[in-house]
Computed example of a mutant assay.
Amino acid sequence: MKTIEKSLYQTVLYLQSDPKGKKIVSKILKEKFENLIVTKSEDEAIVYFQKYQNSIELIIADIYISSKHCLHFIKTIRDVSCDIPIILFGELIEYSQLIKAIDLNINGFCEKPIKKDELSKKIDKILKCLDLKKEQRQQDIITFEQSKLNTMVEVMSNIAHHWRQPLNSIGSLMVKLEAKTDEKQLTDEDIYDVIEKTNSIITYLSTIINDFRNCFKATNHSTDVELHELFGAMLSFYIADLSYYDIDIKVHYEEQSLKNIRYSEMLKQVLMVVINNSKEAIITKVNKTSKGLIDINVYAQDGMLYIDIYDNGNGIEDEMFEKIFDPYFTTKFKSQGTGLGLYRAKILVEKHMMGYIDIKNIADGVCCSIVLPLNEIR
C-alpha cells in the first residue's frame, strides 16, 4: 500500500554565524522545507525577507551575528509581520537581551551547542501551529463565502417583495386585455394603454434592480458615503419587505454623527445581517401586543460612532449570548438560519473596520450596538 507523503513547507530563512552548527540545522530544515535561504548578515537577511516574505514560514537566527545581537533584524521583521514564527540560537545570553527577545514575540530558543532532537521538536511544534492556522483560515474562507451566499438569498427575497405588486399589476392588465378580446371590445386605444402602462412598470422594475445593485454591489474598496445616504439606501431596500410584515423601521441621527464613512459597503452588509435578524425575531414573536418596530439611533461619543439597532421582537436566552457570534450557531430553526450572519458581521466590524459589535437584551426585545472609531469617519 502506498503512503502519501506530506508536502513540504515553503521557505525557511536561516541567519547563521556558526559554521559548526550550520550543517546540523541545514539538514533538519531541508527535510521540512522546500527552500532554504542561508545568510550571514542582517542586511542580507532583510533583503531576502523583503523579497520572499510571502513564502517564508519560519525564521531561524543566531542571536549574535558578527559580535552583534540580531534583535534589530527581528524588530524589522516584527514591524512587518507578527505572525512569522522565529527561533533563536545562543549561548550565555544576557538577561536584558532575553527580555527584548520575549517582547519581540520569539517563538523558541535553543542553547548552543545545538541538539538535533531538541531543535527538530521545536520546529515540529511550530509547524503544527502553522497547520492549524492554515486550516482555520481555510474554514473562515468557506464560512465567509457561505454567508455571502446567504446574503444574496436575502437580497433576492427583498427584490421579490418589491416586484410582487408591479407583477400583479401587469397580470391585471393582461386579464383585462384578454377579457376585452373575448368580448370583441378591444380597441387600438386599449392596446396602446396597456403597452404604455406595461412599459412604465417594466422601467420601474429595472430601476429596482439598479437600486439594489448599487446598494449592495460587491467591492473590496473603501468608499466614502454620507451616513444619511447609506441609511436612506437601506430604508429603500427594506421598506416593502418590512411593510409586508407590518414592521416599522426608523432612523434617528445626531448632527455630529452625519459624517462620511469609509467601508460603506461592509457596513451595509453588517446592517443587513442585523436588520434581518430583527425582522425574523419580530415575525416569530409569540403573543404580539404591538406593531413591529426596528429603531436605529446613530450618534457620536468619546471619539466613537455608535449605531444602536433596537427591535421589539423576541429576546435572546442568557445561555445563548456566549455563542451568538460563533459560526453555525443560530437561535432560529435549522431550516430558517445558518448561523453565519452574525459571525460574518463580527469579522467585518472587528477585523476590517477596527470597531466592535455587541448584542444585549432590553426591556422589550434586543439592542445590537455597532461601534466604529471616528478616525475611520470623515
Rank of each mutant, 00 (worst) to 15 (best):
L88A: 03
L127S: 02
D131V: 11
K134Y: 09
P85K: 07
K51T: 15
E94H: 12
A61V: 05
K75W: 05
I84K: 05
I141K: 15
S96A: 08
L104W: 07
I56A: 02
Q97T: 11
G90C: 04
D43F: 10
C70S: 15
E111F: 07
D117L: 12
I86P: 00
Y48P: 02
F144D: 05
I84D: 02
E94D: 14
I99W: 04
I46Q: 06
C110Q: 10
I93A: 05
P85A: 09
K112P: 05
H69K: 03
C110M: 11
K116E: 14
A101E: 00
S66G: 07
Y52D: 13
I114N: 03
I77V: 15
Q50E: 15
I142C: 05
K116H: 13
F89P: 01
D83Q: 13
I106M: 01
I142P: 00
Y95F: 13
I63C: 01
L130R: 12
F49E: 03
Q53C: 08
Y95D: 10
I126R: 01
I60T: 06
Y48E: 12
C129Q: 15
E94G: 09
S66A: 10
E42V: 10
P85R: 08
I46S: 04
D62W: 02
K75D: 09
Q50F: 11
Q146L: 13
K148G: 04
D43C: 06
E44Y: 06
C82N: 14
A61E: 01
F49W: 05
S120G: 06
D79R: 12
G90K: 02
D43L: 09
Q53K: 15
G90A: 07
I59M: 03
K133T: 12
A45W: 03
I86R: 00
V80A: 10
I102S: 11
I59A: 00
K134E: 15
L98Y: 04
Q97S: 12
S66H: 11
K51Y: 09
Y48K: 13
C82T: 14
H72W: 08
I142E: 13
K133G: 05
K125V: 08
C110E: 14
K125P: 01
L58F: 02
K133M: 08
N105Q: 13
S66Q: 12
L104C: 05
L130A: 09
E118P: 03
G90W: 00
S147E: 04
C70M: 02
V47H: 09
K100A: 09
Y52A: 08
S120Y: 06
I86C: 02
I74F: 02
E42R: 07
E118Q: 12
K68D: 05
I99C: 08
T143G: 04
L132K: 12
I56S: 01
Q50N: 15
N105F: 06
Q50T: 10
K148Y: 12
D79T: 08
P113W: 07
H69W: 07
Y95M: 11
E135P: 07
E44V: 07
N105T: 11
I46V: 14
R78V: 08
A45H: 00
D117A: 07
V80W: 04
E91A: 10
I59W: 01
C82E: 14
I87Y: 00
Q97P: 01
D131H: 10
I126T: 07
